[in-house]
């Protein structure tokens, strides 16, 4: 389970970083979302992975650490708000700058790609 979990987190982080480096606002937003999923999973695992254990003291002999779950919840809420903001900002950037490149215009070497 640990290997699968770690591989998932790693894969999502690498996808997220790749998408962010695409430097167009839509992939960047997707990349940020991917990165925040990975981060949430990672935070969740910081309380050690276990199955069939209650997160409440006294309900099972071995219990799961409840704190990472609370942290993930907070991180999800904050991440959600931030994503909403960056989507709006990306739309505004598209209208204001006339391009979906994060710098307002694509660098010259990329001009072959027709938008």
């Amino acid at each position: 389970m640990e290997l699968l979990y770690a591989a998932c987190v790693g894969l999502m982080v690498s996808c997220g970083v790749f998408l962010i480096l695409r430097a167009r606002t839509f992939p960047v937003v997707l990349g940020l979302t991917m990165l925040s999923y990975a981060v949430n999973l990672f935070l969740f695992s910081s309380g050690r992975l276990s199955t069939n254990q209650a997160a409440v003291l006294g309900y099972s002999a071995e219990y799961a650490d409840p704190l990472p779950q609370a942290l993930v919840l907070t991180a999800i809420v904050i991440g959600f708000a931030m994503t909403a903001f960056v989507v709006i900002l990306a739309i505004r950037g598209r209208t204001d700058l006339g391009s979906d490149h994060v710098d307002g215009q694509a660098p010259k070497s990329n001009k072959k790609v027709k938008v």
């Binding site: 962010i20 990975a38 981060v39 695992s45 960056v86 994060v102």
Partner: peptide
């Protein structure tokens, strides 16, 4: 708008790193 876009994206990545560090 352009400066804000850079600032927001940078800080979102920063927040992700912050969470990883805390984890």
């Amino acid at each position: 708008t352009r400066a804000a876009l850079h600032y927001v994206i940078l800080n979102l990545v920063g927040s992700a790193v912050f969470l990883i560090a805390l984890g």
